[in-house]
């Protein structure tokens, strides 16, 4: 890069060159460099999970690399109880999602669209479960079920999951409702749509992405929950419960296969929604 030499009248002035050097280079890239290192740290266990899903462990524990094998991928359900646990987790996830999204969306509309006495109380009620450690939530529910003599099982797990998913659904849907322009509804009414039509033709379609997001969130919360479930499952074994048990006895590589699949599938869902959103916004 040639620095243009100024005309003769400024010959007394020292002309400085563009500063360069490794220190300057590093300083200007310090933040991206640190950021990428942190990302690397976040991905390190994922590499290990995927890598060790192709391991053929010598003993019960899958902590040391022995040799490459696709055995775990091809014989996924060979491990006793794992696929049953997986199936149960999926079922609980779906039911908990449906119930919490239904209840939560109603609450979100109430808080997001109305001013009423007790609104801040309702907000606090929604916030509290999110600010409570899972151990406390799990043990409180256990105290209730023990006190009421309710047998722990799939039903109590479902009740618990719906409870803690609910808050997250409310927050997600409420944020979407708050971002809507209220003039859109007024415009719809101005254009001869009655309340019902306005809701179903304008409001609901606009809130739908929030509801979809909340559903994905609720499902992943329920599917991955261990602590609350552990307190209230009785003899029911969900997938995280299975992994916990396996961690004591020895983890088969099939657990890593499920971990890898979860990662890939979730990533695919997120990328797909991003692509859809980008396409829509471009039109």
């Amino acid at each position: 890069m040639a620095v243009t030499t100024p005309s003769s009248d400024s010959s007394s002035m020292s002309v400085r060159r563009r500063p360069r050097g490794p220190v300057r280079w590093l300083r200007s890239r310090l933040i991206p460099l640190v950021g990428l290192l942190v990302l690397l740290y976040m991905f390190a266990p994922i590499f290990v999970v995927v890598l060790f899903s192709f391991n053929q462990p010598s003993g019960r524990f899958n902590y040391q690399w022995v040799h490459f094998s696709t055995n775990a991928w091809t014989n996924l359900c060979q491990v006793g109880g794992m696929c049953e646990a997986l199936r149960l987790s999926l079922l609980i996830g779906v039911v908990a999602t449906l119930c919490s999204v239904l209840l939560g969306t109603l609450v979100a509309f109430a808080i997001g669209r109305h001013r009423f006495r007790g609104r801040s109380g309702a907000n606090l009620m929604v916030f509290m479960p999110m600010a409570t450690p899972e151990v406390v939530m799990g043990s409180s529910l256990l105290a209730l079920f023990v006190g009421m003599n309710v047998a722990r099982g799939t039903g109590t797990v479902l009740v618990a999951h719906i409870m803690f998913c609910l808050s997250f659904v409310v927050v997600t849907v409420k944020a979407r409702i708050a971002s809507l322009d209220p003039r859109l509804e007024q415009a719809a009414m101005d254009l001869y749509a009655n309340e019902r039509t306005t809701f179903w033709k304008v409001t609901f379609p606009l809130v739908l992405p929030g509801i979809v997001g909340a559903s994905l969130l609720a499902f992943s919360l329920s599917f991955d929950d261990f602590i609350v479930t552990n307190f209230n499952s009785g003899s029911t074994v969900t997938f995280p419960m299975f992994v916990w048990g396996a961690a004591q006895r020895g983890t088969p590589p099939q657990v890593n296969v499920v971990g890898s699949l979860m990662f890939v599938l979730s990533l695919a869902v997120v990328i797909a929604t991003q692509v859809v959103r980008r396409r829509r916004s471009r039109v």
Binding site: L39, M42, F43, A44, P45, I46, V48, V49, F52, N62, Y63, Q64, S220, D224, F226, F239, P240, V243, W244, A247, T251, V255, N256, V258, G259, S260, M262, F263, L265, S266, L267, V270, I271, Q274
Partner: peptide, 28 residues
């Protein structure tokens, strides 16, 4: 920006327990 945001949460799509167990391997 949006790609990086996805990358930040992507590792957490895997089960909490499985991720934690992976650290057992790393720190063996």
């Amino acid at each position: 920006k949006s790609t990086l945001l996805v990358l930040v949460i992507a590792p957490f799509f895997t089960s909490f327990l499985i991720r934690t167990l992976a650290w057992k391997t790393i720190l063996a």
